[in-house]
């Protein structure tokens, strides 16, 4: 019986740690859009590869941007 090959996922490095960004700005919608799905949902850490702290910073920045109508809460495109 052939065992299913064990997938070794490529370890992603947090983009913010790499770029040494300490403050995630909620006004930078171009950057934040990379971390939301086309439905407007925040992407999970296993998708984005961010570290714990930066994922949290991104999430709060997205929520702040949503409050100011810079990003959608939901988008029914599709």
């Amino acid at each position: 019986m052939a065992k299913p090959p064990i997938r070794k996922p490529k370890k992603k490095v947090c983009v913010f740690c790499q770029e040494k960004i300490s403050y995630v700005d909620y006004k930078d919608t171009g950057l934040l859009r990379k971390f939301i799905s086309d439905r407007g949902k925040i992407r999970a850490r296993r998708v984005t590869g961010n570290c714990t702290q930066h994922q949290r910073d991104v999430a709060t920045a997205i929520k702040n941007a949503r409050e100011m109508a810079l990003l959608p809460y939901t988008s029914t495109a599709r």
Binding site: K27, R66, A69, L70, L71, P72, Y73, S75
Partner: peptide, 16 residues
């Protein structure tokens, strides 16, 4: 353009 309507407005004048 606002991402969603606020008080029936679809646009807003932003200032920082």
């Amino acid at each position: 353009r606002l991402a969603y309507e606020i008080d029936k407005r679809s646009e807003g004048i932003y200032a920082v």
